[in-house]
């Protein structure tokens, strides 16, 4: 039920993001979703791509520090309060959200949100029990 995400360490200097995007573009890797966490010194670029292994390898070859992280993609009803239901469920069960960001594409009528939890397995179990719909990686990469 987990989705592969790659994270890239990027120094805060001009042109670095463009460089990453360029490398992936040239290699034919399609970015499906992204989020950038930044501080004054550095940023962490997180990507869901159609070919995680390939993206990781080419960025590594270009000298970037890259890691693979497992995240969870949850379908969220596209209506007011849709996200709130999920977050309240997680809160009740004391699952911490390390970070989250929205997926670019919709899944039929629903939005998709990417979550990184401190306890991924437990979070998945709880969400499934509560009837939330989690998206498989394979489906996501092809969306």
């Amino acid at each position: 039920m987990q989705v592969d995400q790659i994270s890239i360490f990027i120094e805060n200097k001009s042109g670095r993001l463009a460089e990453v995007a360029g490398i992936l573009g040239e290699a034919g890797v399609n970015i499906r979703a992204l989020s950038l966490a930044d501080t004054s010194d550095f940023g962490i670029l997180r990507l869901i791509v159609n070919d995680c292994e390939k993206a990781k390898q080419i960025l590594k070859d270009k000298g970037f520090t890259v890691s693979k992280t497992e995240v969870v993609a949850i379908e969220v009803p596209d209506r007011p309060g849709g996200l709130s239901d999920i977050l309240h469920t997680l809160d009740r069960e004391s699952i911490n959200v390390e970070y989250m960001y929205a997926f670019v594409e919709r899944c039929e009528e629903n939005a998709v949100i990417i979550f990184r939890f401190d306890e991924t397995e437990k979070a998945i179990e709880i969400l499934l029990n509560q009837g939330f719909n989690l998206l498989q990686g394979e489906r996501l990469y092809r969306m």
Binding site: T39, F42, I44, T65, S67
Partner: peptide
């Protein structure tokens, strides 16, 4: 330098390291 050993995809871990 941040290599794969040091890297975490969470900002707080990297800041704590610094």
């Amino acid at each position: 330098e941040v290599d794969e050993q040091l890297f975490s995809d969470e900002v707080k871990h990297l800041q704590a390291l610094a």
